[in-house]
Amino acid sequence: MEKDKTFIRPGNFFCPGCPAGIIWKLILKVLGPNCIASIGSTCVGMPAILYPSPLDIPTLHVGMPGPAAALSGISAALEILAEKGKRPARGNINVFAIAGDGGTADIGMAALSGAAERNDNGIYFCFDNEAYMNTGIQRSSLTPRKSWTTTTPVGKFQTKKDLPTIMAAHRIPYVATASLGFPNDFIAKIKKARDLKKGFRYIHILAPCPIGWGFPSEKTVEVSRLAVETGVWPLYEIESGVMRQAQRKTARKPVSQYFRIQKRFAHLTDDEIDAVEAVLRKTETPE
């Protein structure tokens, strides 16, 4: 059926239940076959890095700190070649980069910030599984507070870096957060980013990792949904400096549902969860 068509074929090396398989499908559904991808050395980049590959689009992998800079290079080259008339432009080629939270916020931060500041053309997807999962669940700057990782076995002390607002401070045209539990919203955001055509667009997706976060592989989508429904992961977009937040249609679920389903928060006491709940309750708009 037309609505089922994707440009990624079956047969990948993701762990069972990994959200990366779903995300690649959705991204390629919108950005289509006429695209070029710059890949970071992360979990989500595996289809482009391992042989045999299920992808049918051209990809470039230049190592871990690279994806944003490679994005700049590809779009600069496409522009100049089109200007010189050397490469016939077959429609608008969508250039995007996809990298994990380590490759975006830590080792790739300099390149990301540079590319955003220069406002190079391209869409940047941050696949946020909240730790360095590909090397075995080590903490990153996007790991939330009190979360278990192999390098923070008693829970991380520092808070999660608020990367979407950092990117908005670069004054790029479009910043958005997304979650797999709401795929239509995610698709709409990619479409909006694609249709802007110019400038550096940034989409930050929460990607629950069954192995790193400690929940059964079948609950990946459920956890993504819970993250939004409990208020832990707000869905918003910042377009040219104006923030628009998704409003809830139903009551906010208690945040303990989100914490208790994951083993990485198993050591949280009820008091600590109540404290988080109190903070989140303040975000609810009064009826």
Binding site: I36, S38, L60, V62, G63, P65, G66, A69, A70, L71, S72, G73, I74, A76, A77, L78, L81, K86, R87, A110, A111, S113, G114, E117, R118, D120
Partner: peptide, 20 residues
Amino acid sequence: VPVESEHSAMTVAIAAQATG
């Protein structure tokens, strides 16, 4: 491309060359 570091300079050069 006024890159923010030499590492990125090489990355941009590689990506641009790979694009043709």
